[in-house]
Every structure is written in structure tokens, then in C-alpha cells.
Design a protein around this nucleic acid. Structure first.
Lengths: 169, 169
DNA sequence: ATCCGGTAGTCGGATGTCCAACTATCGGAT
DNA sequence: ATCCGATAGTTGGACATCCGACTACCGGAT
């Protein structure tokens, strides 16, 4: 973090790839590395806003899912499907949301295997406040135009579809 | 993971955002969520290839940095700057690369504060093999065309520049 | 009525990332 | 020549993610 670079590390990597493995190998590598780095940058910006609310982005996403739900409750399994994370990740997220009092765990009325997560009043309040703050910084997408954002979402949708994020229904 | 979704979770989230916080808030949120998910998808694909080599993507990146270096050695600090990660992450990555014998730690000839990481012959061999395999699957960028990859890299470069990834030199 | 494959959630372990704090060392200013 | 801020790396802790394994439970088939 000390010395800022005087060159683009991804351009430099692309140069190495072209040299060692052929020109066709550079674009995929560069795109992937760019996604990794963009993820890191945006996450850091979001977490900076969320930290004062005792949240990080993954927990914020989980909280918003409950916030938008009809009853304020969802089975953990459904949350995992919607958030596209492993069941153990949901357990972990709800554990922490419960500790801060933003969510409570409850029993499912008919299926005793199922656990329901329910957003609390405090959780709703924090969700709204955090969302206002995130919207105010445009979710950390700082230099991008509306058109660039749309293009990004559209391109990445192809990747998500290919990975069977969902099937057109 | 059980039920595949029959709708696009990001489209659904965008709908909620438009409804609750106004139309302008949806594109940034959708783009950010897309980046998060794309990161997750691509990382999973890369790790699947790397796992048999006792590597994950972050360690692969570190190994390649050493592979391309003139002498096969770099100070840990320089690696952190190039990889754009916290010094503690470098310590962690080198720890594991050392355990698998792909890298060794050594002393800096003149500065006793500095630790040099050096790639081993086995490390070089694994680096080449893994790179061939990653190139063969186009780094997990499956459905994207060359043009889409270039556009992605270009758009995200703006984000990186804004975050002071490097300054034009 | 029982058995048994599938489902829901959790636990333990590995990986990676960051932050705060600490040790050791360097190198310029006094 | 010494002091002192800056630098290099590590350690400990928090968070998030996955995988494999496990318990508890559901529900249809025999």
C-alpha cells in the first residue's frame, strides 16, 4: 500500500501473458483480474459505509432480503438460494445478524427442519439508513456512467446465465 | 443450492430498488451486485482447476508474480503492492506457498527488515502447468466474446484508476 | 406401519482478506 | 553519535466463503 504503482498492474500482466502464452490468452486473464480487483475496491467502499452500522456487505444483502419479504421472515434455505451462497454461509450470516439484534431465529410452523429468520424493528431501521447512505455514494461505482453500469450488468448477466444462476422461466 | 431460481435475482433486486428508492438507484446497485456474483462464479471455476495443484487463485497470482520476476525473488512488500493486497495477506499467502514447497523465504542481502520470497523449481513447474490449464478454459470467462472481455476490462479500468490503483506515469 | 432417500441446518476445518498492534530495522536530522 | 519517524513483516482477531460430515426431520414407497 505504501508505494503507489506507476503503471497498470493488469496491463503489465497482460503483456507477460501475450509474451509467454500467446496473444489470445491475455484478454480473458485481464478481464478476470479486473473483476477480482473491482470486487475488492467496491467491497471496501461499501464496507466503509456499513461498518458504523455493525454490518458488512454480505450481511447487508441478507438483511435487505428480509426487509423486502412480505412477512419479514424467510427460511434460511431460501435465503441461500436467493443470495447464491452456500448454506453454511447463511448460518454464519444469520448468526451475526442475530448477535447485533437485527434478526431473530424462529421455528417454521409446519416443517421442524426449517429455521425462519425474521427482521427486527431495529433491523428495518438500520436497513433503511444504510441503504440511503449506499445510494448516496451510488454503491461505490464512482466514476462510471449510467450507460457503463448498464453495460457491465448486461455483460455479466451472460456469465451468470452460463453459470446457471437461474433459468429463464 | 437446491432450487434453481426461475428468475434473475439481480433483476428482482433492481425492481425493489426502483420501487423503494427511485429509478436512479437501481443501476449502481445492479452493477455492484453483478460484480460480486461474477467474482464468485469465476473464482469457483478457477479454483476448481487449481485445487489439484494445491493452489487457489490468490496463491496462483502470487506464484506467477515470482515466476515472471527477473531473479525469481521478490520482497514481500513489493508483492503486496503488485497484487494490491494488505501486507498480512502476503504473509499468509507466502506461508502456504512455502508449506507446499512452491516458494522459499530468504533474507534480503542488505536490508534485514526485508524478506525475499523465491520460487522453487517445483513452483515454476506447477505455475506453468496451472497456467496452461487456466488458459485452456479462458480463465473461466466462458460465454464472453473477445470484445466483451475488452469492454469489461476497459470499464473496470476506470474504477481502478479512480481508486488510485496506479497513477499514469 | 416402517424404511429410506432427500432436505434443512449446523459444526469443524481450510482459505483469504482486512485492521490494529507489535517487533525489528533503517536512515535522515539534530 | 544518537534519536526518532518511517518501513517491513508478523501475530492475533474478525469476517466471509467453501467443502465434507453430521443430526434431525420429512414424505413417499413398500
Amino acid at each position: 500500500m505504501s508505494d503507489p504503482l506507476t503503471f497498470d498492474p493488469i496491463n503489465e500482466a497482460a503483456r507477460q501473458w501475450r509474451k509467454h502464452w500467446g496473444a489470445a490468452t491475455a484478454p480473458p486473464m485481464a478481464a478476470v483480474t479486473s473483476i477480482m480487483r473491482a470486487h475488492q475496491i467496491v467491497m471496501a467502499r461499501l464496507d466503509e459505509v456499513l461498518r458504523p452500522h455493525d454490518l458488512r456487505f454480505p450481511r447487508y444483502e441478507a438483511l435487505m432480503l428480509l426487509y423486502y419479504s412480505r412477512t419479514g421472515s424467510l427460511p434460511l434455505g431460501k435465503m441461500g438460494v436467493r443470495l447464491q451462497v452456500h448454506p453454511t454461509s447463511v448460518t454464519s450470516l444469520i448468526d451475526r445478524l442475530e448477535k447485533t439484534g437485527y434478526v431473530t431465529r424462529g421455528a417454521h410452523p409446519t416443517d421442524r427442519r426449517t429455521t425462519l429468520a425474521t427482521i427486527t424493528d431495529e433491523g428495518r431501521s438500520v436497513a433503511e439508513q444504510a441503504t440511503h447512505e449506499l445510494n448516496a455514494i451510488k454503491f461505490g461505482t464512482l466514476p462510471l456512467t449510467r450507460k457503463q453500469l448498464a453495460g457491465l450488468t448486461e455483460t455479466l448477466r451472460a456469465v451468470r446465465l452460463d453459470a446457471s444462476d437461474y433459468h429463464a422461466g
